[in-house]
């Protein structure tokens, strides 16, 4: 289980997270939605210890992540696969070498097992035959799939997706959405998906949480979020900025968040 408890994070005077609390239960797929710059990726990075909270904590399987020593943090990262927004593939390596990186580091795999796992992971994301290609030779959708293959290669218990469908055409978006569902069904992973694409969020998640003003504004099933009467949530899911501005007390929403303005 992943738990974010009263998480606070600021960068200089800019408050990004302001008491975020969210729980992702075993086997769940939770979508964390929100405006661009709302702090979704920042929240995700706290789970694997890429960022340290100013206040509050993150727990994975009951372990307090911010207080972990470096070896224990690396041990935790073996249980968590991270799919980056722009895939973050190592561009000087082939796709197969990218996938092998995690397997080599996590140890315990023979050369044959590594090759087998690479082939299996690429097959799962429908990218067979691309082992020897470099990231620059792949399309945007293929890179995302290769990034997903790298994240699942070492068999993680949790998968964190950072904007898995951003910048993709509608068909490729659907392909990625189906892959996320496939990972849940075939591998039984627990997933937290960062997105601002509501169609994707409805399609892939058991629950949706909306991040606004540094905290979860509303959380519920996709149907509950779709029918929400909260003006900010309704404005966000329906793409109506006037509703959001009304709900946030007439403040403009696209410069920065209300919390950040208060502190400047």
């Amino acid at each position: 289980m992943i738990e974010m408890i009263d998480l606070h994070k600021s960068f200089g005077p800019k408050v990004v997270l302001n008491g975020l609390s969210l729980r992702v239960g075993e086997g769940d797929t939770v979508a964390l939605v929100g405006f661009s710059g709302a702090g979704k990726s920042v929240a995700l990075k706290h789970i694997v210890g890429l960022l340290q909270p100013d206040m509050g904590t993150v727990r994975v399987d009951g372990t307090d992540v911010p207080s972990l020593s470096r070896p224990d943090l690396y041990e935790l990262r073996r249980r968590v696969g991270y799919v980056f927004q722009f895939a973050a593939l190592f561009d000087s390596m082939t796709v197969a070498e990218n996938l092998a990186m995690g397997l080599i580091k996590h140890g315990g795999f023979s050369k044959d097992e590594i090759e087998e796992r690479i082939a299996d992971s690429l097959e799962r994301v429908e990218l067979e035959g691309y082992e020897e290609n470099f990231p620059a030779e792949l399309s945007g959708g293929q890179r995302k799939r290769a990034g997903l293959a790298r994240a699942i290669a070492f068999g993680p218990k949790y998968l964190l997706y950072d904007e898995p469908t951003s910048g993709l055409d509608p068909v490729t978006t659907t392909v990625i959405d189906r892959l996320i569902l496939k990972m849940r069904d075939e591998l039984g992973v627990t997933s937290l998906v960062i997105t601002h694409d509501m169609d994707s969020a409805y399609c892939i998640s058991d629950r949706i949480a909306m991040l606004y003003d540094g905290r979860v504004l509303q959380e519920g099933t996709p149907e509950e979020i779709r029918r929400s009467q909260h003006p900010v949530v309704k404005g966000f899911v329906e793409g109506r900025p006037e509703l959001v501005e009304e709900g946030s007390g007439g403040m403009r929403i696209f410069a920065n968040t209300p919390a950040s303005r208060r502190r400047i």
Binding site: V48, Y74, E75, R77, Y82, F84, A88, F90, D91, G102
Partner: peptide, 18 residues
């Protein structure tokens, strides 16, 4: 620098590399 801005260094960390 390119690895930093394209999150490749973060990716290394998530794969348990120092």
């Amino acid at each position: 620098g390119t690895m930093r801005v394209s999150e490749q260094i973060d990716a290394l960390e998530t794969l348990a590399y120092n």
